[in-house]
Structures are given as structure tokens and as C-alpha cells.
Computed example of a mutant assay.
Amino acid sequence: MIDRHIEVEIATLRTEFPIVAILGPRQSGKTTLARKLFAEYDYVSLEDIDHREFAKSDPRGFLARFQSGVIFDEVQRVPDLISYLQTHVDTLREPGRIVITGSHNFLLMEQITQSLAGRVGIAKLLPFSAHEMRGLNLDLSDILFCGGYPRIYDQHIRPETFYKNYIATYIEKDIRQIKQITKMDGFLTFLRILAGRTGQELNLSSISEQCGVVHGTVREWISVLEASFLIYRLPPYHKNYNKRIVKNPKVYFTDTGLVCSLLGIRDKDQLDYHFLKGALFETFVVTELLKSNFNSGEQFGLYFWRDNHRKEIDVILESGMKQSGIEIKAGKTVRSDAFTGLEYWRSLAKADDPTTYLVYAGEESYERNGTHVVGWSSLHEQLIQTAL
């Protein structure tokens, strides 16, 4: 079993809050992790119809059965149960006695905000990071094509088979549960169009026109994907340095294997020639940063910066008073013009004494032009750990 970096954060949360919530997309490893870290607890899956009906019809009687540690898996299946947990946990003297897992951020966060404020510590679990999989000896093409969903590696499932079924089963099931979307063909068309825009500025009007649906529908579908942890919106940086800046977020899928499947990429060798190779590598790097942030309890902020002259920094990482500008290049060699954007931004932000990084698809890490050049496989050690 591959150890998850978020285990340390969850161990801390269980000492601080009566309830620990492990949220994330379906099949990201939430149940496995909960049962590993809370092995002595009772386990109740609310996917089981008997448990679900009991919890719905008599929530107080259902909760009264569990006076010691318990895991409630897939709690979004009975969202009203969360309201009853408020009074139930107040009778428990020890912290961390209830663990809930769920796949729908939208449904759960709404309930948690209203009912469990101050009583729940939240951990967000995405698929494996490259650093978590370092013992598998995968190359970059393997990781981009296969993605990070645990079942691909634990059960040796072909990526193309896994994602085909993931899209057909889990996405359609979850989407229908969050919103009453009747035209699933239209939604899946939208999903594939959005996959082709990973790493780009989110332009709802353009997507709406390409999909042939109204602007409001696209906005709703975006919120559904974000609620299911399948996409992430990277916000623009708030400092403008006396420049007019872009105010729309950029959109990234949280798993490159899913993007490859949606784009019809059927072999990792196709990646070397695919027109979205750069966007896929950028998506990989951004999601590695996002996973690290979730795993550490969201200790830093992630942004991008672009002004009206199209000067851009792919990612700005802000940790306390420290700022780091990150440029991402999919090539295996680094050209001299790759530093132009970083040097421009560094001149604007010089009062903040920022650090700059260039992440590329090569292996070596070194310093050049005042910038830390980081090979993709050293992202965790050479960037994430040093930037905090």
C-alpha cells in the first residue's frame, strides 16, 4: 500500500476536532485511507441501502448505535445526517471519534458550514501525487497518461479501461446526484471541450458557443465539476503592480489521465506529438502543487499572474510573506527565452524579494539567471519544500 502524505495532517485533525471529514473525488483512496488510519473504528458505508434507509428514516436512532469511533463512508448519500451529527458529537468527550468521507464538495460543504462549524476538521484527498508514486519508477509519460487514481496501480487496470468506466459510471452518477442534468450527451461534450482547455483562462462565453448551450448552463456545469473535485480554478494574483491584470481564473483538471482519456489519447507515445502536450505538463505541475497544499492543510496560496500585455507567470505561490514565481515548460531542455517572463515579474515584485523557479520536463536541477531550474521529478524536494 502506498503511504499518503496527507496522513500526518489527518493525524493532527483527529486530535483537534470531534469530526474528521475526508473529501475528494470518487476513487481517490478516501475509504482505504480512513480504514487504514482508523482501523479500530466501526465502518458504515452509506452506499449500503439498509444503512442508508435507517439513517434517513431515523437519524437519531441510527447515530445512537455508535458511541465510540465510527467511519461513515460516502456521507453525501444522506446529507441530512450531518445536521444530526451536531448534537451527537457534543455528547462525545474525545476528539476524532467520528470520521466522514464524501465525494461531493458542494453538498457536503454546504451542510458542514451550516451545521458543523467549529466541530469538523477537513482533509481533501486527490489521487496519488508523483512524489507518492516515486517508488513505482514511472517516467513522466507514464504519469501524464496514467494519472494518479489508486486502482490503476493497486489492481493493475489499464488506464484507458479505468477512465472509460470512470467517466461512464462515476461522473454520470455523481453529476445526476448533484444536479438534475437530463442531457448527459451534451454534458459529456462539454466535458471533452473543457479537457481541451485545461491550463487556459476560463472563458465561459467561448465554451458556451462551442457547446451550443447558454452561458448560465456552462457556469452551472463548471460548478458541478468543481464540486466533484474533477477541476480546479486557479485564481489571478491580487497584486497588480500598477498594471491592468486579467481577472478570470484559469481552469485545470485534477488528473492528467482523465484529460488524456477525454481527449482520445490512447497511448503514452502520442503525448510526445500531441498539440496539448504543454498544457498537460502544466496541468501536472499545478495539480502537484495543489495536492501538496491539500496534504499540508492548505498552508499556501496558489495563483497565476497575467497583465493586459500578455506578460504572464504560470503560478505564484504565496506562503506567509514569501512569494515564489513559477514558470512551467514542457521541453526537456531550457532555452534562454524561457526566463523572460520570470525576469519581468521579478522586476515588478522586487520590493517583495520573490524567488523564481522554472519547472521543466528534464531531470536535472540547477540555478540559472537567478532562477531555480527544477526537473519534474524533483518538484517536491527542489520547489515545494524550499518555497514554504
Rank of each mutant, 00 (worst) to 15 (best):
Q200E: 08
Q200H: 11
E201A: 12
L202Y: 03
N203Q: 04
N203T: 05
N203W: 06
L204C: 08
I207G: 04
S208M: 13
E209L: 09
E209C: 00
C211Q: 05
C211Y: 08
G212P: 11
V213A: 03
V213M: 08
V213E: 06
V214M: 14
H215Q: 14
H215F: 15
G216N: 15
G216R: 15
G216Y: 13
V218M: 01
V218E: 00
V218K: 00
V218Q: 03
R219P: 06
E220W: 14
E220G: 15
E220N: 15
I222C: 06
I222R: 07
V224R: 09
L225S: 05
L225F: 10
L225P: 08
E226M: 09
A227N: 14
F229T: 07
F229R: 08
F229D: 00
L230Q: 15
R233M: 08
R233Y: 07
P236N: 04
Y237N: 11
H238G: 06
N240Y: 15
Y241G: 09
Y241L: 13
Y241T: 12
Y241E: 07
Y241D: 07
N242L: 06
K243C: 09
K243V: 10
R244F: 04
V246F: 04
V246Y: 00
N248L: 07
N248Y: 02
K250N: 00
V251I: 12
V251R: 05
Y252R: 00
Y252K: 01
T254A: 01
L258S: 03
V259Q: 02
C260K: 03
S261F: 10
S261R: 09
G264M: 11
I265D: 10
R266N: 13
D269N: 09
Q270V: 03
Q270S: 03
D272P: 03
D272F: 13
H274P: 01
F275T: 05
L276W: 07
L276K: 13
A279N: 12
A279Q: 10
F281C: 00
F281V: 04
F281P: 01
T283I: 03
F284T: 01
F284K: 05
V285Q: 02
V286L: 05
T287E: 11
L290T: 07
K291Y: 14
K291L: 13
S292V: 00
N293S: 15
N293E: 10
N293W: 13
F294M: 14
F294S: 08
N295K: 12
S296E: 12
S296A: 11
E298H: 08
Q299K: 12
F300C: 10
F300N: 07
G301F: 02
G301C: 03
R306E: 05
R306M: 08
D307S: 03
H309K: 11
R310E: 09
E312S: 14
D314G: 07
D314S: 06
V315I: 11
V315T: 11
V315R: 10
L317W: 10
L317A: 12
E318A: 15
E318M: 13
E318S: 15
E318P: 13
E318L: 12
S319Y: 12
M321I: 10
M321R: 06
M321C: 08
M321H: 07
K322H: 07
S324F: 04
I326V: 12
I328K: 06
I328Y: 02
K329E: 00
A330W: 08
A330K: 05
A330Y: 09
G331S: 12
G331N: 09
G331E: 09
G331A: 11
G331F: 06
T333G: 02
V334A: 02
V334Q: 00
R335L: 09
S336Q: 04
